[in-house]
Every structure is written in C-alpha cells, then in structure tokens.
Design a protein around this nucleic acid. Structure first.
Lengths: 206, 206
DNA sequence: GCCTGATGATTGAACAATCAGTCAAGTCCG
DNA sequence: CGGACTTGACTGATTGTTCAATCATCAGGC
C-alpha cells in the first residue's frame, strides 16, 4: 500500500542488512541480497557499483540503528546508574528478549574486525564507530559525575575499561562459551563498573 | 643441512602457519601454502585431505607454540606480580620487539572468532583454548594468593575479568586504534589487575 | 487523447576469475 | 619390482561483474 514508488536503493540496502545479520558478512552473496530484495543481481551492482560498497553502506546503516536505540532508551532514564545498567543490558548478547537480542549485532562486529584487519576503509569505519561507542559510555559517566552520583574520575579511561571488558566478554557470550553466560557477563560488567567508576552496586534507596 | 629426510607433513604445516599469520585465515589458499613449502598443491591435499583440516592443525600448532612460550617465560619468575606483568606484556600486541610481537597472533584470534560463528568444530576448539588461557591466568593469581602476595579472592572470576579486558583492548590495538596504543593497553591492564586482584601497583621494595 | 522518442530502470544470460579438490602419470627408494 | 611420494594440468563449482536487450515512465508535439 505504502509502496507508491519503491525506492530500490533503500530496498536493496535493507535486504542487505537482513541477509548480513542472518548469514554473516562472509556468507553474503550479491545473489542473496538480490533475491531477498526481489530484484536481479545486475540491479544490485547498478546501484552500488561493487559488493564492498554495498556491504559498507549496509553496515553503517545497521550501526546507526543500534545507536539510535541506545540513545532513545537512555534518554528516558534519570539516574546515571540506571543509564549505565541499561547500556550494559543492551550490550550483553542474548540477555534481553528476541526483540532486542544483540547476538546478531555482535556476530557482525566480530566479522567487521576480521575484515578490518585487511581492509583499511573498514578499519577506519570501525575506529570511528568504536570511538562513538566509548564516547557514549563516557557521556553517561560524566552525567553521573556532574550530578554527584559518581565520584570524580577520568571518565574516558573508565569508559575505555568498561568498553574493553564488554567487547572481550561479549565475544565469549556470542560464541556460546559454557562458562561465560549472558547473566554472568552482566554481573561481571556491573561489578567492575561499580568498582572502577566508584558507585554502590546496591544503593541504599535513601 | 639438517634436512636429512624432509618431513613433508611437518614442512607443510609450518608453511601453513607462516602463510596464515601473514595473510590471514580467510586469504590463505592451498596454492599459497604449497608455494611457501616449495611443493605442489596436490601434495598438500595428499597429506591433509581438506583445506579445513590443514587449517585446523596449523592453528592448533600456533596456539601450542604461544602457550609454550608463556609458560616457559613465567616459570623463571618468582613473584606472582612479575608473572602477571609478563603475562600482560606477552599479550599486548606490538608491545615487545619483533621477536615476540603478538600482533599476528591476535589477528589470527580475530579470524578464529569469525570462523567459529559458523563452524562448530572451530567454536569448540576456541572454547577449549580460551578456557586454557583463563586457567593460566587464574593459576598465576592463585600462586600469588597462596604466597600471601595477593589477598584472598575468587581467582577464576578475577581471571575472567582480566582475560575479557585483554581481549577487548587487544582488538583495538591490533586494529591500530589511535587512542588505544600498546602502552595504554598495558597500563590499563596493570591498573585494573591491581585493583581487581588487590595488589599494589608499585610495591615498596621491602 | 494519443503517439513518440528519450531516459533511466531492470533483467538475466553470459563472462571471467578464483580455487578446492581430482587424477593419471611420473619419480624415487628400498 | 612395488609402494609410497610427488607432480601439475585439469575439473567443477562458485560467484562478482558486465552487457545487450527489454521495459516503464513521461514530456511534449499533434
């Protein structure tokens, strides 16, 4: 109904995002994207020149989507501690329901890292996105410091530590490590955050 | 000189390890390995049946090599704190000289993670190796606790935290992140270790 | 209202490159 | 001589990309 004039380029991009999250970056063929978009392989190249450009654009879109959700979710919370917890919840693969399961997003990150090793364009894209992520964490920490909820401290360094820990643990979780479960990852992240940033894990409700 | 009777299988395995660390798992072709070993492509398949089996064996060998070096290096150190620092030094990509540069090893890990997402055999191999790594860290921590150098604590949980942090930061370093330099990674790992495990970063030499 | 031609969108078959794995034939060594 | 080892050309499958042909849309002339 709403398809007055379908924007092919956008349709193909969305199809690519779907295929990538389902089958992974390495297993995504142009033919798959074309089939998912209900379009011929030739048309995909017609709009995106090369497969690499298509994948790069699709990845950027997927990331924007994640950041949008995170900032939307966080905006509604008043306490920095709650914001931080929500950030962690959203980052732990498989912790929340299907609706916001981050497993596929993390799988994607792992593949991006692999590709970035040999693809400079992908590498600089990744660096930008990672910095944006750390900055988002640091912003939450600064909010808490400004309001007196957290003690003063180097928010950037604290964000780096938390982001690093989350990356490392998320790898284990997304690969279904028997020891590192989503719940354990969350607990560990919360405890380390509390200690490194300097807040009480279970604040007295006073 | 020492090649009385060349063990082709071993030669090919070593060639595979070289090619993999140079070009990455995804970019390693049978022909490359054959060329590096000075042998025909057919012979590679003759000894290893499939490319996957070749890669799996080569990876296992690379890992054993790393663990051997780590345990050899650590055995010579008496204080647990020094052992831990050595462990971290050996883990930070590009911190030490070329001889023991871990950059290629970490690149490899990133690719193993990517492959493990879709290859169950690779996934369970990874899990085993990762557990071995965390156990090695935990063993060092327990040594320190037993000698009274570190306070009592949950060594397994502490090891999980340190291993997670190292994984996450190593990704940034190996991808040449402008902010996360090898030196910064080391400093951060040491500081977090000190706080989480509970030792003095700069012990009075008493 | 209808034809017309131009422009861009779209197709799908064909092309070309890449590689894992096969195989028939040779070589070496005991 | 025989069996293990070795070769390298070949096959077959996959897949990114090209391209000639077709189709849709629409502005503008009649």
């Amino acid at each position: 109904m709403a398809k007055a004039r379908p924007d092919r380029r956008t349709e193909i991009l969305e199809a690519a995002a779907r295929v990538i999250t389902e089958r992974g970056l390495a297993e995504t063929r142009i033919a798959d994207v074309a089939a998912d978009a209900g379009v011929s392989p030739g048309l995909v190249i017609y709009y995106f020149e090369t497969k690499d450009r298509l994948l790069a654009e699709a990845l950027a879109q997927l990331n924007d989507r994640f950041y949008l959700q995170v900032s939307r979710d966080i905006r509604g919370l008043t306490s920095a501690r709650e914001q931080l917890e929500r950030l962690i919840d959203l980052s732990v693969p498989g912790l929340l329901g299907e609706e916001e399961d981050r497993r596929e997003e993390w799988s994607l990150w792992v593949e991006v890292w692999g590709r970035a090793l040999r693809d400079p364009a992908m590498a600089s894209e990744r660096e930008v996105l990672d910095r944006r992520w750390r900055d988002a964490i640091a912003a939450v920490i600064r909010t808490g410091q400004a309001s007196g909820e957290f003690p003063a401290g180097d928010a950037d360094e604290q964000a780096l530590r938390l982001a690093g820990l989350m990356d490392g643990l998320a790898i284990q979780v997304v690969l279904n490590d028997a020891i590192v479960t989503p719940e354990r990852m969350k607990r560990t992240c919360m405890e380390v955050s509390a200690r490194e940033i300097g807040f009480e894990l279970f604040p007295a409700k006073a």
